[in-house]
Nucleic acid binder design. Structure first.
Lengths: 344, 344
DNA sequence: TTGTATGCGTTATCAA
DNA sequence: TTGATAACGCATACAA
C-alpha cells in the first residue's frame, strides 16, 4: 500500500503558474488592500483550481501560534467530563481552534508531564481540571508565567491566579442538605470525596453549614470518605459500613451520583428501602439518575456549558494576549439547581 | 495582565552560548554518530540549563509530519464513544502522538468539513466512526488517496478500502436473540437503529437470522425504527406504540442500552413488568445497565479496547508509510459476550 | 568531528 | 500595485 507521497500545492506553485511573485499571491489571500482586483481574482481562481491549502506548520512557525488549545481532564470516559469536553470542542471549533485532549487519570505526575507536552506542542492556551492528587500548583503557575493562558474549571485551586469556571459547590451542597432537613430527615450522613479537591471540600463545608444553620450539630462519625477513584464501589462499601456503624441514619448526601448508585446497590442487596428507610441525595444529575428506581434526587450541574464557557474565556485571553490588550482574570460561577425526585 | 512574551530557547541560542554551530547542536541532540562525546555532553548540559525544547512547528515544517492524529466521532458525551476516545488517547500518548478530537453530531456535512480541517492541519492519520447520515464515502476515500492513513471503527463502511476495527454486530445480535428464543420467548420485537449505519444493519440482520434459524418467521411489523438521535425517547415512544400495536410481544431486543432504558421508563409508567410481561435485551453494557431495576441483560462491547486497537493500527500504518514499507489493511473484529441479568 | 548552506512554506517589510 | 528578501527554527547533504 505504500504509495508515493503527493505534494500539496504551495503558494509557490500558484505563483509560478500565474507568473507572479509569492508575495503577491500571499497578499491576495489576505485582506491586504494593495493588490489589484484582477490579480486577486486570478489568484483566488487558481487557488481553487489547484486546491491550495496553507501549510499549517509553516503558518504556525511564522505566526508563532498554533490555533490549537490543550485540555487536561482526569478522564474522558466519564459522564460529566465528557460533557465538558464536548462543550470545549464545540466552542473551539466554532472559533477556528482545534482541541488536543489528555487525561491525567487523577495522577499529578501525569498532569505535570502533560502540561509540559502541551507547552512543547506550543498550544495557544490550556484548560485544566485538576487531578485528585494535585495540591501543589507550581506546574500550573509555570505555564501562566510562560504567558500561556490557563483556565481552570470544575476542580480548581483557589490560590492559583488565573481565570476559573465552577459551580458554587458549597451552596449547592448546602441547598441539598437544607432540603433534606426541611423534609424532616434528622440524621444525615455525608459520603464525601477525596480530601484535596476544592469542590470536594466545598461540598463537605456546605453539608456542615446546612446542619449547623438548622440547629443540628455536626458529627464527624457521619462522614464517610470516598477516595478510591471508584465511586460506585466507594459508595457500595461505605454504605455497608454505615449500616453497621450508624444504623439510625435516615438520609445520605453523596458527593456524586455514581457514589449514590453504589449505595443503591448495597441497599438493594440488604433490603433497605429508599427513601422509606434511608433517603439518598446525589450530585451532578447524570442521565442514569433519572432512570434508577427510585429516581435519584440530585443537583443539576451544567457540564456542557462549563466546557463552553471555559473555552470562551480562554480564547478571549488568547486573543487579548496576541493583540497586547490587558485583561483581568474571570471567575465564573455557573448556576445549579436541585432536582427533586423519588429518593428523598 | 498582558505581559511581554518570553522567547523560548532555540538551537541558535545554544550554539552561540557554546560557540559552536547550529548543525552540531542539532546533531548532538539526535542519534548521530559523528559528534564527539565532549561536545555532545556540553550540548546536553546547556540544553538542560537553558531549558531548550524544540519548536514543534519548525520540526513539523521540516519533517513534514505533525505527530498528531485526528479523531472524528459522532459525539464525545456518550458512554461508548468516550470510552473509545479514552483508549485512543492513551495509546497515542504512549507512542508520542497527540490527539485532536472532533464531533460530527451525526451530520455528514460536519464530517466532511472536519475531515478537511484535519487534512489542512496536516495530521498524520485519521480515525473515524461514521455519522448516521453517512452513506457515500467519497470524502473518506479522498483522504486515503491523499495518502493519509485512515482507520474506521465501530460505525464503518464495508466498501471503503482501509483498515477497520469493529465487533461482530450480526453475531452478537444473533446470540442475544437466540438466547431469548431458547429461554422460551416467542414473539420478539426489535427496536432497530438508523437505516444507514452498517452496525445497525448488521444487528438487524442478526436478529432476523436468529429468528429464521429457530423456525420463527420474521415479521416486519415487529421492527421499530429508532433514528431520531435520541435513543431514550426513541425507546420510550416506540415502546408506547408497541403496546398499542403488538400487545402480545413478549420480548424486545433493543439496538442499544439507552433505547432499552427508554423502554424501561415507558413500561414503568404503564405498569408493565420486566421480564414477567415483556423481557428486554440491550446492547453495549453501559454502566447504567447493571444498576437498573431489574438489571439489564445486554452485550458487552469493548469500547476502550476498540479505541486502543484502532489507534495502534493507525500508528503502525503511519510508521510504515513514513519508512516506505508496504502494508496490508487490517480488519480486526473484537470479541463480545452476552451479559445475562434480570431483564430476560 | 565540525561547519556551511539550503530548504521546508509562510508572512511581512521595504524597495521598486 | 508588485516583487525581492529576510526571517520563523530546525534538519540534513555536503564540504571542510
Amino acid at each position: 500500500m505504500g504509495k508515493f507521497k503527493i505534494k500539496p500545492t504551495t503558494l509557490k506553485d500558484i505563483a509560478t503558474e500565474l507568473n507572479i511573485s509569492i508575495a503577491t499571491v500571499s497578499k491576495s489571500l489576505k485582506s491586504y488592500s494593495d493588490v489589484s482586483r484582477s490579480t486577486r481574482a486570478a489568484v483566488v481562481k487558481m487557488v481553487k483550481k489547484m486546491n491550495y491549502n496553507p501549510n499549517v506548520a509553516a503558518v504556525n512557525l511564522r505566526t508563532q501560534q498554533s490555533k490549537t488549545i490543550g485540555v487536561i481532564i482526569p478522564t474522558v470516559a466519564h459522564q460529566f467530563f465528557s460533557e465538558v469536553l464536548s462543550g470545549i470542542i464545540e466552542e473551539a471549533e466554532k472559533n477556528g481552534y482545534l482541541v488536543i485532549t489528555l487525561q491525567s487519570n487523577e495522577q499529578v505526575d501525569s498532569e505535570k508531564r502533560q502540561i509540559l507536552l502541551l507547552q512543547h506542542k506550543r498550544v495557544d492556551g490550556i484548560l485544566i481540571s485538576l487531578s485528585n492528587e494535585t495540591y501543589k500548583f507550581k506546574h500550573i503557575e509555570e505555564v501562566i508565567q510562560n504567558n500561556i493562558p490557563v483556565v481552570l474549571f470544575d476542580k480548581i485551586s483557589k490560590i492559583v491566579n488565573c481565570s476559573k469556571v465552577t459551580i458554587n459547590d458549597c451552596q449547592a451542597a448546602y441547598d441539598a442538605v437544607t432540603y433534606l432537613i426541611k423534609k424532616g430527615y434528622k440524621k444525615i450522613a455525608h459520603f464525601r470525596g477525596s480530601l484535596k479537591p476544592q469542590n470536594s471540600i466545598d461540598r463537605f463545608v456546605g453539608y456542615k453549614k446546612a446542619l449547623v444553620d438548622n440547629g443540628i450539630s455536626f458529627d464527624p462519625l457521619l462522614v464517610y470518605l470516598c477516595d478510591n477513584n471508584d465511586d460506585f464501589n466507594d459508595g457500595f462499601q461505605n454504605a455497608r459500613k454505615l449500616l453497621d456503624e450508624q444504623p439510625d441514619v435516615d438520609a445520605i448526601f453523596a458527593i456524586t451520583d455514581s457514589v449514590a448508585v453504589g449505595i443503591y446497590n448495597c441497599f438493594h442487596e440488604v433490603g433497605i428501602k429508599v427513601p422509606e428507610d434511608i433517603a439518598i441525595f446525589g450530585f451532578s444529575n447524570w442521565f442514569m439518575s433519572s432512570v434508577l428506581t427510585p429516581s435519584l434526587s440530585t443537583i443539576q450541574q451544567p457540564g456542557f456549558e462549563m466546557g463552553r464557557k471555559s473555552c470562551e474565556i480562554l480564547l478571549e485571553e488568547i486573543k487579548n494576549l496576541k493583540n497586547d490588550i490587558s485583561y483581568n482574570f474571570q471567575q465564573v460561577v455557573l448556576p445549579t439547581s436541585l432536582v427533586i425526585r423519588n429518593s428523598t
